[in-house]
Design a protein around this nucleic acid. Structure first.
Lengths: 181, 181
DNA sequence: GAAAATGCGTCAATAGTGCTGACCTATTCC
DNA sequence: GGAATAGGTCAGCACTATTGACGCATTTTC
């Protein structure tokens, strides 16, 4: 083993440290990356605090949200929206069902399906969670001009670009559904 | 044990399922909550793919980002920005150091400090990651009018409200720093 | 009507990121 | 010289996600 261990000086010579800050470039700042990071962190922090008091995490929130937005949603549809695996979903969903926040009802047309509905308890937790988040969004949007909501919504929609299909799926479901089979 | 187990029907009677979708309320949609979710997921997906090829995760990205934004940052400052514990940071930071993306240099004024600098390798990975994200932000902002960037930045800034101090800290650091001790 | 496909549940193992608590060194401050 | 500060590290736990492999019930297809 004649291989020598590189000294710190040698390493630095091979790849010297950089001391200049990574500055804003062009019209689109690196700043936006940080803004997204901090904004999303606060956005989720609101709900996280409440969830923790129920012994839940963010995953529970997401399931609860979409089940409330689209009662009667199937497992497969939920998996598509969340873009996680069946195994990841099941553990969390099971807790929500066992603790009575979500109920499963076999489909009538296709009895293999287990359609998901919020219970009263589930609906009210969702409302509690959403209220906090909506409040923050509301406060952030208020006062940035009348065009604010439209501009921001359009920005977010474009950011989620490849997933626009998920949003339009919700559009059709939220409006057309709601009657028990 | 005379306690009976509630039948499904009994449970449903106690807390009936809700079949009406959770619809948009007032000026601020529940829709915005989904928009934030989908937007952030795509925002991080860009970088995640690249990171995975290096065997890294999002935590590595965040450290790398702030070290690049503010070379010479101390551990304590980084902990404040990321809002995680020292133990969480150290595991990830260690990998970045061991693999030569970040270098530690003892402070000159206070030799207890371990100031963090990106190496050339670290700077270039950060640029690679940021380019993807900036591209998406750029595309999302382009075409929503000249006031777009300003409105969106202000919205995000307000969303991150309680953390504005973190952003202004960066402001001062990004501009004033950069000379090796 | 039998075979194949679909919708869902579940066991088992692993990774990434976060946490708490405890304890250690080196350095600076008073 | 003793306390406070900057940082490192060990050990254990929680949550969310992953992949792979089966199993069961129900539709669909030929």
């Amino acid at each position: 083993m004649s291989k020598t261990i590189a000294s710190r000086a040698e390493i630095e010579q091979a790849d010297p440290i950089v001391t200049t800050p990574l500055e804003t470039v062009g019209a689109i700042d690196f700043r936006f990356i940080e803004l997204m990071f901090f904004a999303y962190r606060q956005f989720t922090a609101d709900a996280d605090a409440i969830l923790a008091s129920y012994g839940f995490g963010r995953a529970h929130h997401r399931i609860l949200h979409f089940v409330n937005r689209s009662p009667g949603i199937t497992i497969a549809e939920l998996l598509d929206l969340l873009a996680i695996t069946k195994q990841s979903l099941s553990r969390v969903l099971r807790q929500l069902i066992d603790e009575g926040f979500v109920a499963q009802v076999p489909g009538t047309e296709d009895r293999r399906q287990r359609r998901l509905y919020p219970t009263g308890k589930g609906r009210s937790l969702t409302l509690e969670l959403s209220r906090q988040q909506a409040r923050r969004i509301d406060a952030a949007i208020a006062g940035i001009g009348p065009e604010g909501p439209g501009v921001v919504a359009e920005f977010l929609r474009r950011m989620g670009g490849d997933e626009r299909s998920a949003l339009s799926w919700l559009d059709t479901k939220v409006l057309n559904q709601g009657s028990l089979p």
